[in-house]
Amino acid sequence: MSLAEHPLRKYTRPHVKKTTTCPGCGNGIVAQAILWAIDELNREEGLSMDDFVFVSGIGCSAWIPSPLFAADTLHTTHGRPIAFATGVKLGLPRQKVLVASGDGDLAAIGGNHLIHAARRNIDLTVVMVNNGIYGMTGGQTAPTTPRGLNTITSPYGTMEPEFNVAAMVAAAGAPYVARWTTYHPRQLKRAIKKGIQKQGFSFIEAISQCPVQYGRVSKLGRATAILEHFRDHSLKLAKAREMSEEELAGKITVGEFCDRQAPELASQWSELRARLGKEQG
């Protein structure tokens, strides 16, 4: 039996024959992880692409849902996908709203939206693809760039420490936060599925490879070399918690940062609307 087409093609737009990414880019792996998670939810809970609204900002990873996914997609302004997604969720509380965008978009330009959406605990699933660099614009230093890396805007090495985004979002109050790399596609898929099912703000950080920009400046080169780096430098969170900051330098901590219950904003709005409607006749 030979398949006529990939089983995930039923979730992609028919006119989009190919992914828009460079060869070896991790965005395709994250896109697949999202679609496999939705495929499982389709079989288990009957969710379809019509139940979703996908929101993305600007950057290479913003091209994951738009134009690839056959669903309602919003390709918004730089750094603002969470602001748009908040409006979509409050206006259409029954829809599942998933934000897929990059580190430059969500953690740098849109950093405050991310912090406050986590604090407000609005029911969004945010998948942040973190490649550690501004890929689309030519390889400039991002807040997520590892310290010491020579980029085109830091030819003598970045002097700033890198942003631990997952830990920050967990500290801001998000009920579900996980981090995996593109070397862990199964765990990534499970985390995204859990995030979609979670009532509340869920944040999944996918450490991803940019062979073109990050590969060049880090001298790692090919996508496979960056994936090998992820494989060799990933560390489970439970183990990392027993280690000192010096020992953790250069490591990528992966796992679930938190999984808890907290009052969710969109459902509180719905309850308030119902209560006031009753009181005022």
């Binding site: 039996m1 398949l3 990939h6 992914t19 792996i29 496999w36 596609p185 199964r186």
Partner: peptide
């Protein structure tokens, strides 16, 4: 299925066959 899940371009499909003809 590692290749299928890790392929960024949806170019590989691996179907496990459990002793029966898959449809």
């Amino acid at each position: 299925q590692s290749c299928m899940l890790s392929c960024p371009d949806m170019a590989i499909v691996v179907v496990k066959e459990k002793g029966e003809e898959a449809s």
